[in-house]
Computed example of a mutant assay.
Amino acid sequence: MTSVRPNPAKSPPLAVSSWSLHRALGLTYPNRPDHDVEAVAEATYGPGRLSLLDMPRAVAALGIDRIEVCSFHVPRRDAEYATEFRAALAEAGVTLQTLLIEYGDITNPETRERDLAWIESWIDTAAALGAEQARVIAGRAEPTRAALDSSVDGLIRLGRHGEARRVRVVTENWFELLPGPREVRYLFDRLDETVGLNGDFGNWSGEGKYADLQAIFDLAICCHAKADFSDGVLNAEDYRRCLDASIAAGFRGPFTLIYDGPHPDEFAHLLIERDFIRHHFATTRANGG
């Protein structure tokens, strides 16, 4: 049998999240709505061997030209640093696809206004860094109708804040508010076009996982393509079924590679994910899919 060789030129667009390199980056810079101060470096994952300014070049060396950055990996938010970061992107030929805003609960009535204002300030940072998108959390409340409606109102506010700064706001099938497709679709039936969906392979589990993913990926404009390495090797069956669910719904990328398995060699495992996706799409195309 003739093997199908992936053609990167015809592969779906790929990105790499800074979370997938958290060991290589090492340092984090905690900033949250309840601790909104100038971030001080913490060696959360060790001293690191890359700075965030090094990340675009390191990802470009993998043959990938898009990145996503977690807010806790951003060391500074001043104009000088933003200029340096945009220069590093330009030099590497890499696009900042998404700034991942990792905190805030817009469904908590006690802290909602504080958190919305904090998230808006990070959307401003996304714009300064040159991000196409900013990922925000839809909420941490249980999915009552009141909580979902509160999320809709907050997301529309954030979406319009981003639109005014040329940053598309996206949210994710994540946390307590969005445990399944029914809640996701309730939300998106009521949102305007300023908010998109980032579908995540790794946030749902259980028997209905693949059907549930397929039921929302027609809404997705980007994807966290997290592979399961819990046993030390890629769970190929799970990754294939996640990809097939997204493809069946009409999604074709970009896929952001997410690695957080136990092996410390993050770059080697990102290559495993990259090659799996490219081969899967090449094989699907060759078979008429």
Rank of each mutant, 00 (worst) to 15 (best):
A87D: 14
P75S: 05
P75E: 05
L243E: 06
A220Y: 01
R241M: 13
F229Y: 11
P254F: 08
G261R: 07
S151P: 00
S151N: 01
P6A: 09
S151W: 01
Y29H: 08
D34K: 09
P254E: 14
L187N: 02
C70R: 06
L50C: 06
P264L: 03
E163H: 12
H161R: 00
D189T: 12
I106V: 11
A282K: 14
Y259N: 01
E172K: 04
F85A: 02
P109A: 00
I277P: 01
R160M: 11
R274W: 06
R23Y: 11
A117G: 12
E84G: 10
W118P: 02
T95V: 14
P47E: 15
P8W: 08
L219C: 05
D36A: 15
K10P: 09
A88S: 13
V233Y: 09
G199Q: 08
R160D: 15
E132Q: 13
L129V: 08
P143C: 02
D265P: 10
H35Y: 13
T144I: 07
I123F: 00
A60M: 02
H263R: 15
G130Y: 02
R157Y: 10
L53K: 08
W19A: 09
E193V: 04
E38G: 13
R66K: 14
V16F: 05
A215V: 09
R140D: 13
L96P: 06
P143Y: 04
E42V: 11
P109Q: 05
Y81R: 14
E84K: 15
E172R: 01
H22M: 11
R168W: 06
Y239H: 11
L62Q: 12
T44P: 09
D228I: 10
P181D: 09
V74S: 03
I67C: 04
M1R: 09
A245L: 12
S230V: 07
L155S: 04
L191W: 00
P56Q: 03
P13A: 15
N235V: 07
N198W: 01
Y210G: 00
G26V: 10
A147I: 03
D260W: 07
E132Y: 03
E84C: 13
A15G: 09
A82F: 06
R57L: 10
A39M: 08
F267P: 08
I258D: 13
Y210H: 06
L21W: 00
S246T: 15
W204P: 00
K226I: 01
F229D: 11
A147W: 00
G48D: 10
P179N: 08
Q97C: 06
L178D: 05
G199Y: 00
